[in-house]
C-alpha cells in the first residue's frame, strides 16, 4: 500500500502540521515505507484470532473507587498559562 501526496497532506492537516513541499515528499516516502514494513504482517494467517487492543496480554483494566482525591490547585496549574481571565484559560476566539 502506498500513500499519495494528497493523503499525506490530509493527514498533516488533521494533525495541524504545516509541511513544506520538500518535507511532504520525504514524509510521503517515509510513511509509505513504514506501511510496507508493517504490511509484512498480512502474510500471517490471523483467522480466528481476536485482535489485541493492548500489547500486554491477558491484563485487564483496574478500576478506581468513586472517591474524590483531588483538591483545587488551579492557581498552581495556571502558573504557566499564557493568558488568563477570571481563572479561565484564554485562547484566540474559536466559535463553532
Amino acid at each position: 500500500m502506498s500513500l499519495t501526496r494528497r493523503d499525506v497532506e490530509n493527514i498533516a492537516h488533521l494533525a495541524r502540521l504545516s509541511l513544506s513541499d520538500a518535507e511532504l515528499s520525504v514524509a510521503t516516502a517515509s510513511l509509505t515505507a513504514i506501511l510496507a514494513f508493517v504490511d509484512q504482517l498480512s502474510a500471517l494467517d490471523a483467522t480466528g484470532l481476536e485482535p489485541m487492543a493492548h500489547p500486554l496480554p491477558d491484563q485487564v483494566q483496574r478500576l478506581r473507587p468513586d472517591v474524590v482525591t483531588e483538591t483545587d490547585q488551579h492557581v498552581k496549574y495556571q502558573a504557566n498559562a499564557s493568558q488568563l481571565e477570571a481563572a479561565l484559560y484564554l485562547v484566540p476566539k474559536v466559535i463553532e
Binding site: 468513586d66 474524590v68 490547585q73 496549574y77
Partner: peptide, 21 residues
Amino acid sequence: RTKIFSGSPTAYGAPPNSQAN
C-alpha cells in the same frame, strides 16, 4: 462523584477550573 478517569469532583457550577487536575 468524580470524573471518569481522575479523582476530581464533578459538581456543577464550581468556580472555573477549580475541578480540573
